[in-house]
């Protein structure tokens, strides 16, 4: 697939989604983005917006930064109201479903879907139960659709990055809540640009050489969480 193939980036208003969209646009890729004000749980609105953006064509790649970083908050679950639980855990699940479902309608045969998630669910993090729950849900939802869409040669894979990188993308961490999140472990590798890493993995997954990779999880967290 050529670098200039059309890419739909969902979740591009902040965090790593924003940084990925900016980087792809800067290098000349054809980028399609949904309005930042769109409610991603409104299937009808998302579908209409996509149809107006794509027209009668289709997109070759979908990059879904699947959780809005602004929803992250570290708190014990017993302190959450039902509404707070919904916002932190279930809203991201619903929006991921709607995004995948509606993106499927505009995705070309042989297209590539790449989800970006924070690497928190592999180990679990105290204080982030809703986020860990949402991440694992979306990760397996991606596997399920990878099985469903394989007949159209569509691949669906997930890239996980460190939580701070997911929340901030290229931005400076500064004095944000991300610095308060309990550390899972020390990365094995020195600091590097997570966005660079993710762009490289997106290009790899979008290449013809990756046509047989689907339902996979690629972890780009500098070796912080090494899967058993």
């Amino acid at each position: 697939m050529a670098p200039s193939a059309s890419t739909l980036v969902i979740g591009s208003s902040s965090g790593i989604g924003f940084s990925i969209a900016r980087r792809l646009r800067t290098r000349g890729d054809s980028i399609i983005e949904l309005p930042s004000t769109l409610d991603l749980t409104n299937a009808e609105a998302v579908g209409e917006s996509l149809r107006s953006l794509v027209g009668s064509g289709s997109v070759d790649r979908v990059v879904l930064a699947a959780i809005d970083p602004s929803a992250f908050r570290s708190a014990p679950i017993v302190s959450l109201t039902e509404s707070e639980w919904d916002q932190a855990a279930e809203y991201p699940m619903r929006s991921a479903f709607v995004a995948l479902q509606q993106a499927h309608g505009v995705l070309a045969d042989g297209g590539r879907v790449i989800l970006i998630l924070p690497t928190v669910a592999a180990t679990g993090v105290a204080g982030l139960v809703p986020l860990c729950t949402a991440v694992e849900t979306i990760r397996v939802m991606a596997k399920a659709v990878a099985r469903r869409w394989g007949a159209r040669s569509i691949t669906v894979n997930t890239i996980e990055v460190e939580l701070a990188a997911f929340m901030l993308g290229d931005s400076d961490a500064g004095d944000t809540e991300v610095t308060m999140v309990p550390v899972l472990g020390q990365p094995a590798l020195p600091p590097a640009s997570a966005v660079d890493d993710v762009i490289g993995l997106i290009d790899m997954l979008a290449s013809p050489a990756a046509g047989a990779i689907t339902g996979a999880l690629l972890v780009a967290d500098r070796g912080t969480v090494m899967q058993p």
Binding site: A121, A122, T123, V129, E136, T137
Partner: peptide, 13 residues
């Protein structure tokens, strides 16, 4: 899957 993510995080909490 949600339950598995929940289990890992809540076990720590």
């Amino acid at each position: 899957a949600a339950q598995r993510g929940f289990v890992r995080a809540l076990a720590r909490e």
